[in-house]
Simulated scan of single mutants.
Amino acid sequence: MRIAVIDGQGGGIGKAITEKLRKYLPKETEIIALGTNAMATALMLKAGANEGASGENAVIQNVDQVDVIVGSLGIIAAHSMMGELTPKMAEAIARSKAQKILLPLNRANIDVVGVYAEPLPHLIDHMVKRIKEIL
């Protein structure tokens, strides 16, 4: 299974996701770090991603090459992450046939009704559980 972890800005969320995926999923699981910037990608690589790439074209080209895409809800919202996530990136991610498992973080001014606010580590645990179910 190939999983793309998408993050931007400082890369902290992508790092936390990558660490948990690497810890709880089988070793043969391939994790691809896709950062909106080089700093985010580097942090995810240090956390255990197999390979990584940065920027708009890297995201657009790679989201169709994976089975699962993970990140915050903002990765499907154009201009999120303080403008780092471009409309082309958001469209490519949304159009990808890959299963999307997104954290309902309200940083893009998007509230998902019926979802309860939980600390990031708990949300990532739910994400890992869902990916294990898919495996």
Rank of each mutant, 00 (worst) to 15 (best):
G10I: 03
S80C: 06
A78D: 00
S80E: 02
L34T: 10
P104E: 00
M39G: 04
L123K: 09
G83H: 03
E91K: 13
L105S: 03
K27R: 13
L21E: 09
G114M: 07
P26I: 07
I3W: 06
S80W: 00
A47G: 08
A92L: 08
L34G: 09
M1D: 13
H79N: 07
G11A: 09
A90C: 00
S96G: 09
L73N: 10
A16C: 09
D111E: 07
L85F: 15
M89C: 06
L123W: 01
I31T: 13
G12C: 04
N106F: 09
G10F: 02
Y116Q: 13
L103M: 07
Y116A: 15
H79G: 00
K97V: 06
N106I: 11
G11V: 07
T36G: 15
G83N: 07
A92I: 09
A58M: 07
D125E: 14
M81T: 01
A40Y: 04
L103K: 04
I69V: 14
S96F: 05
D64K: 11
L123A: 13
K20D: 15
D64F: 10
K46Y: 11
L43M: 06
T86G: 04
A49P: 10
I131T: 12
H126T: 12
M127I: 05
V63Q: 08
H79K: 01
S96E: 04
R22Y: 09
A108L: 01
G12N: 11
E51T: 15
M82P: 00
M89Q: 04
A4Q: 10
A4G: 14
R2L: 02
G74P: 00
I69S: 07
S96I: 03
D67E: 13
N50M: 00
I75K: 02
I101M: 13
V5C: 02
G55Q: 01
V63M: 12
G114K: 04
E28G: 00
R22G: 09
V5R: 01
A47P: 04
E84D: 03
Q61F: 13
G11N: 08
H79M: 00
D125A: 15
E91N: 12
K132L: 14
A108Q: 00
K88N: 11
P119R: 05
I110P: 00
I13P: 02
G10K: 02
P26K: 09
I17S: 03
A40P: 05
R130K: 15
V115A: 12
T29N: 04
E51Y: 11
M82Q: 11
L25S: 15
E51S: 15
A94W: 02
A53Y: 10
T86N: 03
Y116N: 14
E19K: 13
A4Y: 10
T36E: 07
T36Q: 08
L21W: 08
I13E: 03
Q9K: 09
I3C: 12
D7N: 07
L45M: 14
I124M: 00
L103I: 13
D64Y: 08
R95W: 08
I110R: 01
E118M: 11
L25G: 15
L123G: 15
G114E: 06
H126E: 13
A94Y: 07
G14V: 03
P87A: 04
K97S: 15
I101H: 05
H79T: 00
L21K: 05
V113S: 02
G83P: 10
I69M: 07
H122K: 12
K20H: 14
G71C: 05
P26N: 12
V113M: 05
L102E: 04
G83V: 03
L34Q: 06
A77K: 06
G8L: 03
G11T: 10
V70C: 14
A38N: 12
